[in-house]
Design a binder for these strands. Structure first.
Lengths: 190, 190
DNA sequence: CTAATGTTGATAAAATTAATATAGATTACA
DNA sequence: TGTAATCTATATTAATTTTATCAACATTAG
């Protein structure tokens, strides 16, 4: 299972543009974006070019120009971005609703793998088509605030608190998902 | 989102071996498998080699040799096969429980994209770690029977009924998923 | 013995993804 | 007006992954 680098960069850029917007920063230059997100500049330009072509972002050209969201964040569905950049949500094309392609198997209508992958596609779509950029930005900013970390494009703010990790620390806590976060307007897992 | 060809072939092979087992056929040669599933033979060998190394299948060597399942089908979890062949279930490595890798983003613990992808990973795992080869084989054979299609490795049986598709036929019906199928022991969507 | 089959490792070809380069257009502001 | 910062658009290269092929060997039924 994989999201391409391009898809990842596109989403990270949109999230950053969304945060910038929330923080009252009207636009970001490619180099600001590339630096702050540690993305390769010239490759990023291509991604932004594509997002612009699809109408998700707009630009102010010339000196002091940059990119900004072209739509309200609630209208930017994550699933659509993935479809645009990566082609489909389903793990295999024969299970894709929007980018269906015939598979090599002898009898697609009786393929157990395909049946399974249709469910996986539905599970993925269920998440990615439910959330919009607005949700992601909201959750990200909330978590930053809760942990007392300076928000991007903010003048001052405490830096992240130093944390000592236990020996068996698993970097991926299932409770770190966005669902748990959205369900919980205040506390968080700690 | 993508499952690699290798992962697809591995799963299709296991399903076929499972059906063979159910039909009383003790083993399948690579060429039988490749032909019946229309897979490239030599590439398939590599996949089977990997499955064998991990203990999912075994071989009978020499003339009239071939491959067969090394474990009861209920012990072969689909998620584990995908992990073995494709590395992980999560769309990005920083959201993977079993194959975690640090991402390039400046602050992983406050990355909205990662939070979202953790949910996607969980949704995928929720399906792929719940089902075993046994479920897939069961559902596949049931659907074949219901549609009066000859089962593989069976002497006789009606051929698939001719069907006229409507103009706007969408080849992917969400109801064709394995969940709906398993929930329904008899009827099917028709 | 021998023909069919699996084993193993090497390698090559193709496709996709990722990244860089280049030439040009636009704009703010000195 | 000039120029430096910036986006636009396309082309090219590099890296990686996927797919496929090759070849020499080992095993086994008959």
């Amino acid at each position: 299972m994989n999201l391409t680098r391009k898809g990842e960069y596109a989403l990270r850029s949109l999230i950053k543009l969304g945060i910038a917007h929330e923080m009252g920063k009207s636009h970001l230059s490619v180099s600001e974006l590339a630096q702050s997100e540690k993305l390769p500049l010239k490759f990023l330009e291509q991604v932004l070019y594509q997002l612009r072509g699809a109408g998700y972002i707009e630009t102010k050209r010339g000196k002091f120009g940059g990119y900004y969201l072209a739509l309200p964040m609630v209208q930017i569905r994550i699933g659509d971005i993935v479809r645009l950049i990566d082609g489909k949500l389903a793990p295999i094309a024969c299970a894709s609703l929007t980018a269906y392609e015939k598979c090599s198997c002898p009898d697609e209508t009786h393929c157990g793998l395909r049946m399974l992958m249709i469910d996986v596609r539905n599970a993925i779509a269920n998440i990615l088509d439910r959330y919009t950029l607005s949700d992601i930005v909201e959750v990200t900013m909330r978590k930053l605030r809760r942990d007392g970390v300076a928000l991007p494009f903010e003048k001052d703010g405490k830096s992240a608190p130093a944390v000592t990790l236990p020996e068996d620390f698993n970097p991926v806590d299932p409770r770190d998902g966005i669902m748990a976060e959205l369900a919980n307007k205040t506390g968080g897992k700690s």
